[in-house]
Simulated assay, not measured.
Amino acid sequence: MKQKFQINGISCAGCVARVKKTLQEHPAIEKAEIFLAPKGATLITMKEALSVDELQKQLNTIEGYTIEEIEK
């Protein structure tokens, strides 16, 4: 299952790598694709549906990023 999100706080390739690694550490996330253009656009492939709150909790292990769902 793929869902689209917007991650705020992404500004460079280093941010992309750090956020991608953090998200993919969650057992329900198979793959996270994060783009710099448009900045912070994210496509997450999950084994099971995760809420934005659950994803934000995972992101809170690193500081400076927020996630929000965009149109399905």
Score class of each variant (00 low, 15 high):
residue 65 Y to I: 06
residue 63 E to I: 00
residue 10 I to G: 02
residue 13 A to V: 01
residue 71 E to F: 11
residue 27 P to E: 10
residue 56 Q to V: 05
residue 44 I to M: 09
residue 64 G to S: 08
residue 30 E to T: 12
residue 34 I to C: 12
residue 51 S to H: 06
residue 35 F to H: 14
residue 12 C to W: 03
residue 61 T to Q: 15
residue 28 A to P: 05
residue 44 I to A: 09
residue 13 A to M: 02
residue 50 L to G: 03
residue 66 T to S: 14
residue 46 M to Y: 06
residue 10 I to A: 03
residue 36 L to S: 06
residue 45 T to G: 05
residue 39 K to E: 07
residue 68 E to N: 11
residue 43 L to G: 00
residue 12 C to A: 04
residue 29 I to H: 08
residue 38 P to C: 05
residue 8 N to A: 07
residue 59 L to W: 01
residue 55 L to F: 13
residue 28 A to V: 13
residue 30 E to C: 04
residue 61 T to D: 09
residue 19 V to G: 06
residue 67 I to T: 03
residue 55 L to M: 14
residue 40 G to Q: 09
residue 25 E to T: 14
residue 52 V to T: 15
residue 71 E to G: 14
residue 50 L to P: 07
residue 60 N to W: 04
residue 18 R to T: 13
residue 1 M to Q: 15
residue 38 P to R: 06
residue 46 M to R: 05
residue 4 K to A: 04
residue 24 Q to V: 10
residue 45 T to C: 04
residue 25 E to K: 15
residue 70 I to C: 01
residue 50 L to N: 04
residue 11 S to E: 03
residue 59 L to S: 01
residue 55 L to P: 10
residue 9 G to C: 01
residue 23 L to Y: 04
residue 22 T to C: 13
residue 55 L to H: 11
residue 49 A to T: 03
residue 38 P to V: 05
residue 9 G to V: 01
residue 65 Y to Q: 07
residue 59 L to A: 01
residue 21 K to N: 13
residue 72 K to T: 11
residue 22 T to A: 11
residue 45 T to F: 12
residue 62 I to C: 06
residue 44 I to N: 08
residue 68 E to F: 01
residue 3 Q to E: 13
residue 38 P to M: 03
residue 7 I to T: 02
residue 33 E to V: 10
